[in-house]
Design a protein around this nucleic acid. Structure first.
Lengths: 209, 209, 209, 209
DNA sequence: GATGAATGAGGATTCATTCAT
DNA sequence: CATGAATGAATCCTCATTCAT
């Protein structure tokens, strides 16, 4: 490894850290003031960097917002795993999915609120990204509903509406609890959400802790 | 009736119409571009009035937004009626409430989307008004849950969370369906929402059409 | 006298009264808020007339201000009378002039403050009118100085500067006393001003270069 | 001295120069058009800067005006020095004060006119600042009068009125001479003002009631 | 790379004046 | 004559973005 390599490695790492610091600052700021009302000035103050530096790491305010959405999308996408049709306990798999999403929301409360609040109409790319996120969430829920029905666990519903309703229910509970800072423990929150979404729908509720 | 009376009556009416035209234009514009991003210029273009005229009817952009929120709140408040504990068929009363809310949402799709999107953080008065609206919705749902439980219609749930979830479910379904312009008929939409909210929770589902 | 004549006479009088009412309202409003900050809305509110009516009586806001300046100028012009070179007691004549000007200021405190505050730079015609007023005042004082010197009553001074100083002294005393509402009696105020202008302060003038 | 130091020093200096250039431009513009009528557009045109740059150096139009008032106040406060009661020639000290104030007015003609014109009623802080300036001037003159009387140099007068008159006399002379651009030499102007204030006009005071 | 001064389009709001009724 | 709704130019100010240092 040459000196240049080591140098550029260090530089690369530092660059990454800086980017991350900006993203974390933006999370806080955008969540606190709302994306449209938060200014670049707020972000650079929080991130302790100069105006120019910001544009060295991000193309625009919208690009920063977009990246935060991407981050959240990535976390949620990782958290939600398609249930194997062969799985012996699909309901448990679904509960685990809920638990992982709750984990994401409670670990990144500001990012979660920010994204769930959905500031739309600013930029087409952002709107499309949010659409894709919701399409994904929607399809995951629809998948669960269909699978649950096929297993005879869930009664037959009109999936498009019910999936939307389930997504909305989760969103609202997250937003409300994160905003009011109720430090509900993760387990009970997951349980309540799971039961709401599933119990209503499931014919034979699984025995979960 | 004197000439003056008749004149001022006509003037009063015209004034009211103008105000209404601005409100309707604002509904469209704020819904399409989002409140923070929509400018007064957009509104006056849509309403076909001059800059000055706008401020003849509204004190500020925020005041206009506030009035739209008030309008929506009024419609929803009228739509949701507390169920008499003596009522022989409380589930039907609740379904009627749902039907009336769906009616409001489908009759005023832009207003509904605009308000449900909740642009917050711009003005304290607005934030408080939205808080009050959600407190009201929340309390209505909690009321229904408690009552349903007392009748043995609904299983016991942790009402604060479940009420939040129900409100969120309705919000999301409205937002999604209004945004994508699915011209679903009111009856089936009401039914789906009602069943989602109730069926899940009710021990003995009512026989509704 | 025909009916038409009488009618038009009454109309004429009413018209005059209205005009006067507006002028008096404007005096109050312009004095209280300052000419540039006072709006036509303030004036018509104070005068209890409609927006349109205002423009029936005055061409513009500036024209109204101009008319108030004219009124003040008229009052002051009437108050200040050139002293006859033959007069046996010219100093008394000057004191009487002072007394009449004080009378004007105390009778029309708002008009006086308004005009003495000299909002300039708004309109060339107004600036010129104010210039003429000050030229007149200046020339009156210069006249008194010259005359006084010719009688041996006043020592020889460089009139242009001293006349300006005398005018300024009067202005400031009026402004100060009117603004702070010191209800000093007219006689003592006139006396103080007269003495200041005429008598001088030093008993033994120092020997300065 | 590090490079950063030198750089920030140069930056600091440039910043100061820019600020100063804006202040000087504002002096000109506010003097020419009057503070309320001059717009930020006028100032930035005169200063050859962009709209945004202006707000980089000043918080608001009022803040800029305030700073100009402060500048003038500072200059005048420095110019006027309390006369030591032990001073062998207090009249000379007073003449020196007058000379220094004249120097200020002639060196900063636009600033002087601007401030002496007293645009009030726009902003409470500004009004209070102007009040303080006049209180200071008033108290300086009162001090001189009282001291002069104690030395037997000045006859006993009713100080509050006479001090107001003296301040007004100076104001008017400055305003008049600066506005009309009479390039009177400083010495003779100081002399005339001093004599007016100190010496008085009449040789044989008339016997008035 | 890092900085922060500079930019100017765009925002909400005001207000003197006009004119149809 | 009287009215007051309508107008739109003009005002102050903000802020995302650029660029010379």
């Amino acid at each position: 490894m040459t000196i240049t390599d080591r140098r550029s490695l260090r530089a690369e790492q530092k660059r990454h850290e800086r980017r991350d610091a900006i993203l974390r600052a933006a999370e806080r700021v955008f969540c606190a003031r709302g994306y449209p009302d938060a200014s670049i000035a707020d972000v650079i103050d929080a991130a302790q960097i100069s105006r120019g530096t910001f544009y060295l790491y991000f193309d625009s305010k919208d690009a920063l917002y977009m990246e935060l959405i991407e981050r959240f999308t990535g976390l949620v996408t990782e958290a939600l795993q398609v249930v194997d049709p062969q799985d012996p306990d699909p309901a448990l798999r679904i509960l685990e999915n809920v638990q992982r999403v709750v984990e994401v929301a409670l670990t990144h409360p500001e990012l979660t609120q920010l994204v769930l609040r959905e500031s739309r109409g600013l930029n087409q790319a952002i709107d499309e990204r949010l659409d894709r996120l919701y399409d994904f969430l929607h399809s995951m829920v629809v998948g669960a509903l269909v699978q649950g029905a096929s297993f005879g666990l869930i009664r037959k519903v009109y999936e498009p509406v019910i999936a939307t309703a389930v997504v909305g229910a989760f969103k609202e509970v997250f937003l409300h609890h994160l905003a009011h800072g109720h430090p509900r423990d993760r387990a009970s929150m997951s349980q309540a959400l799971f039961e709401f979404g599933m119990r209503g729908l499931i014919i034979t509720p699984p025995d979960v802790t």
